[in-house]
């Protein structure tokens, strides 16, 4: 009689190609989960850092003191948050240009804004790291699984041709084996896809906040520059 079926026997008795596909999918699933968890931590900390900094910024604190606090924090090997980095880049450039002298107010503003743009794109890059990988896993792993299934079913039909007579006992295990590959592909794809959508929305929200802050800060600097000129 036919020996009992189990997922494990199916996996271990599958053909090499199908096993390879399953291995790739398992690795993709593990790596994508690493990314999911790591991104979650990074985005959470970016969110929190942003709110904290905004609160401090709008508390009426002197801007140069805020800058000094950030410097001290960096000296203590504690990294500053994304929004603070933008602020620091803009403020540093602004102070440097002002101290240089002989630079027009427009020139100072343009320099500060350029520095902030650079810092902004760097922060955005940090936030969006690994998200393309999640998108790739989400969209490609079902296809990889499907490939494994097609190969498995092909093999089962080739074996069937040798058998001469098709009975359910011959066909069923091979098809079950082939379908495991699809199941694994979906298993890897679904969390990756959900996480990609969710995280890109969050990154959009955070970078939107960064842009708003950049504009606000530019406004403040603008006021300072042109106020002093009078």
């Amino acid at each position: 009689m036919q020996n009992e079926l189990s997922v494990w026997t199916l996996i271990f008795e599958a053909t090499i190609v199908v096993q390879l596909v399953m291995l790739i999918l398992l690795l993709a699933s593990i790596v994508s989960w690493v990314m999911i968890i790591q991104r979650l931590l990074v985005l959470n900390s970016a969110d929190q850092g942003m709110w904290n900094f905004e609160k401090r910024f709008w508390s009426g604190m002197d801007l140069s003191q805020l800058y000094r606090e950030g410097s001290n924090q960096q000296k203590d090997n504690k990294p500053t948050g994304g929004m603070e980095n933008i602020f620091r880049a803009g403020f540093k450039e602004f102070m440097r240009l002002r101290q240089q002298g002989g630079v027009s107010a427009e020139g100072i503003m343009a320099g500060a804004q350029r520095a902030m743009r650079v810092a902004y794109s760097r922060e955005e890059e940090k936030l969006e790291k690994h998200l393309p990988f999640l998108a790739t896993v989400g969209s490609v792993s079902p296809y990889i699984g499907l490939f494994g299934t097609v190969i498995g079913i092909m093999n089962s039909f080739i074996a069937l041709a040798g058998q001469g007579q098709a009975s359910l006992q011959v066909v069923a295990p091979a098809i079950a084996e082939a379908l495991i590959a699809t199941a694994m592909g979906l298993f890897a794809a679904i969390p990756a896809y959900v996480a990609y959508n969710r995280y890109s929305t969050r990154v959009d929200a955070i970078t939107g906040n960064y842009i708003t802050f950049t504009e606000e800060f530019a406004g403040i600097l603008h006021r300072q520059v042109f106020g002093n000129q009078k």
């Binding site: 999911i36 990294p79 940090k126």
Partner: peptide, 14 residues
Amino acid sequence: MTAFNGYPFSVFLA
């Protein structure tokens, strides 16, 4: 905050 990567933790959890 960006230097905090949390990779070992994520690998472990995954």
